[in-house]
């Protein structure tokens, strides 16, 4: 944003609250790493020094859903696991986004079998589908940037009427 340059000049700038909120929101997406199988290893690689997800403000991998904004579903979701994924998604506070990482998460991929859910969009709303088996880490960063773009387009009032999560509820 070139904030430093602004500071050099007048020391203030004007903007809308919507813009600053969505800017803050998109620059610090905290992912919930739903690492299930092979893709989880590539997701780990994104955090390592070579690819360094910290450049995008998302290095804070929260292992509890209650502190995260973005769920990266990385790996084959089976019918047995689908209930767990859904339960964890439900525990995330709104607003929340989902990346379906890899072919088998998006569509079942090469697993045309009795136990694999043929695409997690059957029970979750997905924002970004990510191709590859598994996708390269660069590709995951690309997906993250797309999510950021999507978050940047939102308005704060879009989320006003969303139900607040009930933390007293026993999940």
């Amino acid at each position: 944003m070139g904030l430093e340059a602004k500071l050099q000049q007048d020391g203030f700038f004007t903007t809308t609250i919507d813009a600053i909120i969505s800017w803050a929101r998109k620059s610090s997406v905290w992912p919930m790493p739903m690492g299930i199988s092979c893709c989880a290893i590539e997701m780990m690689a994104v955090g390592d020094p070579k690819y360094d997800i910290a450049r995008f403000g998302s290095e804070v991998m929260r292992f509890t859903p209650r502190q995260s904004d973005l769920m990266i579903v990385a790996g084959t979701v089976t019918y047995k696991m689908s209930h767990v994924v859904k339960k964890i998604y439900d525990q995330m506070p709104d607003p929340k986004w989902v990346i379906a990482m890899g072919a088998c998460t998006s569509s079942g991929g090469m697993y045309r079998s009795y136990s694999v859910v043929q695409g997690i969009d059957q029970f979750l709303p997905v924002d970004v589908y990510l191709a590859g088996c598994p996708p390269r880490p660069d590709n995951l960063l690309n997906a993250l940037m797309q999510v950021q773009e999507k978050i940047g387009r939102t308005k704060a009032r879009d989320f006003q009427d969303l139900p607040q999560p009930d933390f007293t509820k026993q999940y």
Partner: peptide
């Protein structure tokens, strides 16, 4: 005799 793609409805999915 069990088909590869399974028997529809034998394994439940969570509600959307």
């Amino acid at each position: 005799e069990f088909p590869v793609m399974g028997i529809p409805g034998s394994l439940p999915l969570p509600k959307k």
